[in-house]
Structures are given as C-alpha cells and as structure tokens.
Design a protein around this nucleic acid. Sequence first.
DNA 1: ATGGATGCAAAAGTTTTGCAAAGAA
DNA 2: TTCTTTGCAAAACTTTTGCATCCAT
Lengths: 145, 145
Amino acid sequence: MTCNTAEINRQLRKSGYRVTPQRQLILEAVCQLGEHVTPETVYDHVHRIAPTLSRATVYRVLHFLTEQRILAMVLMAEGRLAYEMSGPEPHHHLVCRTCDSLLELPHSVLQSFLRAMETQYDFEIDVSHVSFFGHCADCRSSDGA
Amino acid sequence: MTCNTAEINRQLRKSGYRVTPQRQLILEAVCQLGEHVTPETVYDHVHRIAPTLSRATVYRVLHFLTEQRILAMVLMAEGRLAYEMSGPEPHHHLVCRTCDSLLELPHSVLQSFLRAMETQYDFEIDVSHVSFFGHCADCRSSDGA
DNA sequence: ATGGATGCAAAAGTTTTGCAAAGAA
DNA sequence: TTCTTTGCAAAACTTTTGCATCCAT
C-alpha cells in the first residue's frame, strides 16, 4: 500500500491542521498494518515505537484522519470498527430508476461487506463493478414516497 | 412481524432448553420493536415490564436465541450490533463460476448492508434478488488458488 | 507567541463473567 | 429433584472527555 506522506502532509497544512509526529506514526501504522486495522492494533503498534503515545490520541487521530478522508472507516464482521487507507479505488454505482442519476459508491464500502460474506460463507467473490438500483433522495422527496 | 411463540417454545423444549418468562419477554420485545433492535433498546423495553430482568440476561438471551437461529445478528451503520427475527425471507445467491453451484444468502445479510448504504447515501435501494459471482470453497481448494 | 494537539487520568458506555439463588421440567 | 437459567455485582473491554501542558506553525 502506498502512503504518500508528503502529499498528505501538504493537504493537512493547507487545511490549517498541523502535522505532528503522532499523526504521522498513526498514519504509517494504518498503511503498513493492512486493510482492516482496529484502534487497538494501531495502538499496540505505535505504542511500541512511541511509548507515551496514548490511546486517546489514537482514537482522536483515527477520527480526524477519517474526517479528512485520508482514512476510511470499515465495518468488521464482529461489529467492530476498523480503518484503512482510502486511496483511489474502483467505484460502484447507485443508479436512480427515476432520473437515471449516478451516485458513486466507494469500493471500500462494498469491499468490507464482501469480505464479511467471504469469511462467513467461505466463498471468494469477484466484482469489478456493481450497480444497485433504486431511487435517489431527490426523486424520493418529489414523488411523495 | 409474526412471532410464533408456541412453535418457538416447542422447538426450544425439544432441544432440551427451557422456556422462561425472560426469554419470552425478550423474544417478544425483538418482535415488536422492529428490525434492528439493539441490546440496550431491548433492555429498556423489558426492564419496564419486568424491573428485575437484568442486562446480563438480555445479552445472554440474545446470544442464545441467535445460536438457536431464532434471531439473527445484524450489523448497524455505526458498527454496533443489533438483532432481528430471522423468519423466512427472500434469499439471494452466491454463484460459483467454476461448478455453477448455488449458495443461498439470507436476505438479512444483504439487507443490513443495504440499510447502511441507504442511510449513508440517502438512497432507497430496491432488490428482489441479487447474485454475487465468484468461486466456492471446493473449487478454490481443488484448483490451487 | 499562539492556538491546535497531546498525555494523563478519569469517566462513560458496552459486554462478559462468577457465583449463589431461583425455578422450569 | 435436577440442572438450566437468572440476578446481582464486579470485572473486562472499548471509547470519550476535561484540562494542563506541549509544540507545530
């Protein structure tokens, strides 16, 4: 997994936030540790490197980086939250049957669900693109649904 | 939502378990409260009726009824667990591209995911049947994947 | 220097567990 | 009567928060 620290740091500073060693450590940890990283896993990892780095900071930074769209929150099978890098990924679509509008669906949203199913059913699902059909917010409110 | 208490009680006794007022109250609560009921919601409800019924019992009974396939565990958007009746529902399929076998996918599995997406994207998804394609456990192990 | 970010510790929230007592079969 | 299930209380675990201090800018 690529973790373009320089670019991310630039983005944060540009938005008026600060680049701290803690934020960098936590970001790198998520990067390195893989796809579905729990707060506790991150804490274990960074705490070994920086023993004073607290759990509170881990939680705060994970939230923060998620708000900044640098990380994405994913739902684990046991109902626990995890995080992963939210890099450029294949997108899927929510297609409105009334107005034909397209809503892009991040792959990560679908992926975490597919992962859970794969684990649960021991079935390897392959998807390059998925579309779900239905009705968008605008059409739902305008036809009195 | 139908909640065939008599049938369920018979099933429990047949399996050697006991039908207690607590189990009945909790089951009825999940039945009445709707589709995605959290342990806390159940507790609030039954505690009002039976003030001595404890949280521990709520958690234990929810687990128990899930093991018995009477309830189903569903994943909520915020990463919290909820429960619902696991009645007969539309099924979807996992289709193996190698051997064409079908694996049935409970609607609840898909539904909880769709619900989360609906909430997140304010989009009403309609699905009567969905198939996901991939490779089943047997074919994966036999072709050295 | 200035205000956002962190560390600590305590609180809040959620789920589990041990054990004696209750009660369904 | 027997053995599962419950209630209570405490523990375990996860996440949040207040506040003084620190440090990136």
